[in-house]
């Protein structure tokens, strides 16, 4: 039986192999994704993001368990950083999700960023589609531990959950651009620690200043993931957001945006491959470097020539 059919039937060995092929950019992966595409779009995609050590993995573990209690199946993609020097990685998110390994209705995959800087890996989108086509009701995407500006998740998930913890900084951090702007829900985890209430207040004040708030007012939920406190309420809020997305038309809007982004990225990738291939095969500008260095030519004219010759 072929891989695509096995993925459709939820065969875990097949799902895992296809994700590997997508990560390695194997041509079979694109062919399989093309075939699986009509089976995608059924899963509800939830992004979990926040700084390193804020408890994203533990929170994900507890959220998945609660969703399983409600009878739904869950795929999880957990991204951790790859070394910029060796390309190696330690993917440690699974440690917090050990109990889920043996649950038939759960599939967890760890991915290294492999050079991507936006908090996800290049193949994350493919992995999401594969889990979606395999029939999982929910797909959780846990980003790398983020700083301030790794916001790719908001273009990837239907619902983005931003996790904060006490002790990271003052209220100026909360009004900065970037990660604090992308939350559909905010979680203050480790809420038994000193300063949790202050974080809740600062987040609340940040949200009050938001001028372009739509009909959805992002809730702030306190949790202690390690003891499961606040988890039931958080799942309720996540589902509430899904209902809001579906009823307001926002879900369609977000998914259309995602498809446009995806197509743009695929085009850019193909164009980049074409240009770099052309340049390496002909030493395209090698001869012109001296002339540019001596100011006889400039980079802008050379760029115009390269683009004209390669693309038009």
């Amino acid at each position: 039986m072929d891989l695509v059919q096995q993925v459709r039937e939820g065969n875990k060995v097949a799902i895992a192999r296809l994700i590997t092929k997508a990560e390695n950019e194997a041509p079979e992966a694109t062919a399989a994704l093309r075939e699986l595409y009509p089976d995608t779009g059924r899963a509800y995609l939830i992004g979990i993001t926040g700084p390193p050590g804020s408890g994203k993995s533990t929170l994900t573990d507890k959220l998945v368990k609660e969703i399983r209690k409600r009878g739904k199946t869950v795929g999880v993609i957990a991204v951790d950083p790859s070394s910029p020097f060796t390309g190696g990685a330690i993917l440690g998110d699974r440690i917090r999700m050990s109990d889920l390994s043996l649950d038939d209705g759960v599939f967890i995959r760890s991915m290294g960023t492999r050079g991507s800087l936006g908090g996800l890996s290049k193949a994350t989108h493919d992995a999401i589609k594969i889990l979606d086509a395999a029939g999982f009701d929910y797909v959780f995407i846990e980003t790398v531990g983020v700083g301030q500006s790794e916001v790719d998740i908001v273009k990837t998930a239907d619902t983005t959950v931003v996790v904060s913890v006490p002790g990271l900084g003052d209220d100026i951090q909360a009004i900065k651009a970037g990660i604090m702007e992308i939350g559909d829900l905010f979680v203050v985890n480790k809420a038994d620690k000193d300063g949790a209430e202050k974080v809740v207040i600062e987040l609340g004040q940040m949200l009050e200043l938001n001028q372009n708030m739509g009909d959805w007012y992002p809730p702030i939920v306190k949790t202690i993931a390690s003891t499961n406190e606040g988890i039931v309420g958080l799942v309720d809020k996540i589902n509430e957001h899904l209902n809001y997305l579906a009823n307001s038309g926002e879900l369609i809007k977000r998914r259309k945006e995602r498809i446009s982004n995806e197509i743009l990225n695929l085009i850019l990738k193909r164009v980049t491959t074409k240009i770099t291939g052309k340049l390496s095969e002909e030493n395209f500008w090698e001869n012109e470097l001296d002339e540019i260095l001596n100011k006889l030519k400039n980079p802008y004219d050379v760029t115009d020539r390269v683009v004209d010759e390669v693309l038009l």
Binding site: A16, I19, A89, I90, L91, G92, R94, S98
Partner: peptide, 24 residues
């Protein structure tokens, strides 16, 4: 340069095999 998935402590053979399969 390898990608290493660490399971953490006290894993049963069943858990190890499930992780090995899902992580391919």
């Amino acid at each position: 340069g390898f990608e290493v998935i660490y399971t953490g402590l006290r894993q049963t053979p069943e858990q190890i095999v499930a992780a090995a399969i899902q992580e391919d």
